[in-house]
Design a protein around this nucleic acid. Structure first.
Lengths: 243, 243
DNA sequence: TCCTGGTATTTGGTATGCCAAAAATCTTCC
DNA sequence: GGAAGATTTTTGGCATACCAAATACCAGGA
């Protein structure tokens, strides 16, 4: 049996020199494809176009410069996430949610966030809670949220995510983020549009106050009612937002 | 170019005769593998063995009689579910949850279930709510739950799932089921063991009563507190249950 | 012109084979 | 006998080829 030639130079370097960077698993193509496709799907406004958006394995593999195999694995993952649905010999379709489904998701979000609020009152540090106000420091009497809907919407999302994070519950954080990704698919519904924006800020501050006061029940209720309010809003005014 | 021979007989049948059965997409190997592996993982007691359980793509493909491709796709899906974690050139390991993680999951479960309870008070039919009692009809003064822990545990799970279903919220149902699958991994913790079993039944009945009374706040509170009680129990007595 | 049979093409599903990194095993030299 | 080093084996990652079902497309006939 012929010996395999060795081209690798002997490692003469000194050990334990710099903090080992964990070698960076250099994400596989599968994961890269997953991230790329996920971002692409989230970026596009799937509710804007009349006909459903389809994906093509081969086209994607060419665009991303990899074979179909990792693409298919990425698609399988996206399907688990509910972003995509592959129909046997038809194609891969980007899932469009109905108004009912979105409302349903927002309710679940409300449930998770109210639990987060509950937990926060018992574990979070005062300064971290107070820091939540910073998300809205750019808004006030002289700069109304309803006059900067886009910007306020971003602050809104950031606030909610920061809030959940304070619960220090990975499960709540992950589940909520997943839901948020789906809900945010609706561009037009920038998380409570102009008319809701006005009441949004005071409610947020109310939540923060309850958290600071360590009033578990009140914080939970306010967090829940706030998000349920959004659900009700979408349910009532959602017609025009959906196809 | 040679013509492809046609073996299909011409369909001379009368249309609109029998209800077309939609052909049944005959789940792909990928999905079959997913289901099979998922069930296998849930069936095994991963917390019983000292060393972590590993899966081998090739071995699995042989066992299931399919190639590695569908197996890998199934693995990718299971990884999304959090049941499995594949380490690049090491292997595929069945994820073991820590006590903290389980407690965290139960809290999320509590959040979702309390929201379900809330919704139920406003939408469910009286008879459906009352039917929830049936799950415990085999237990009473003469047949205490704590004397039939295994059986009661099954009724327990069934009750909770039926409860959530009554909310008619697919999102709540799906999210809860996913969490349940992970939580149930702990065989030893048969969802509140003997000592908790005693208080479990009355609490369940309390939830049902609140639902029947359409007392939204109370139902929510009872549902939440009941499950949070389990979380607290696991957090307090979980040491001996985990490695 | 429009329908019809049928072929070509498209598309996801699956099987295989090879690669490189790691780990396991074996060699060899001190 | 032990340890460093080379080799084999294992294992997941990826590319490729082929299949069958579904569809698109096209020619021929009423």
């Amino acid at each position: 049996m012929p010996a395999r030639k060795q081209t690798k130079a002997p490692p003469v370097m000194a050990e334990a020199d710099i903090a080992i960077v964990r070698i960076a698993p250099e994400t596989s193509f599968k994961n890269k494809a997953y991230e790329a496709l996920k971002e692409a799907i989230l970026k596009m406004d799937i509710y804007a176009t009349p006909e459903q958006v389809m994906l093509d394995e081969r086209a994607l593999s060419e665009r991303l410069g990899v074979s179909r195999t990792p693409i298919r694995e990425a698609i399988a993952m996206l399907e688990q996430d509910g972003f995509v649905k592959t129909v046997p010999r038809r194609g891969i379709v980007v899932v469009r949610r109905t108004k009912t489904e979105i409302v349903d998701m927002i309710r679940a979000w409300a449930a998770l966030e109210s639990m987060a609020a509950r937990l926060i009152t018992t574990t979070a540090r005062k300064k971290d809670i107070t820091a939540l106000r910073d998300f809205f420091k750019d808004f006030g009497k002289d700069r109304l949220p309803q006059d900067h809907v886009e910007e306020y919407s971003k602050a809104n999302i950031a606030f909610h995510q920061a809030l959940i994070s304070l619960s220090e519950s990975p499960v709540l954080v992950d589940l909520t983020n997943d839901l948020l990704l789906h809900v945010r698919g609706y561009r037009q519904l920038t998380i409570g549009r102009k008319d809701r924006t006005a009441t949004s800020l005071p409610e947020h501050l109310g939540i923060i106050e309850a958290l600071e006061a360590r009033d578990t029940e009140l914080a939970e209720k306010r967090a829940r009612d706030h998000t349920l309010g959004l659900a009700a809003y979408v349910e009532a005014h959602g017609q025009e937002l959906f196809s």
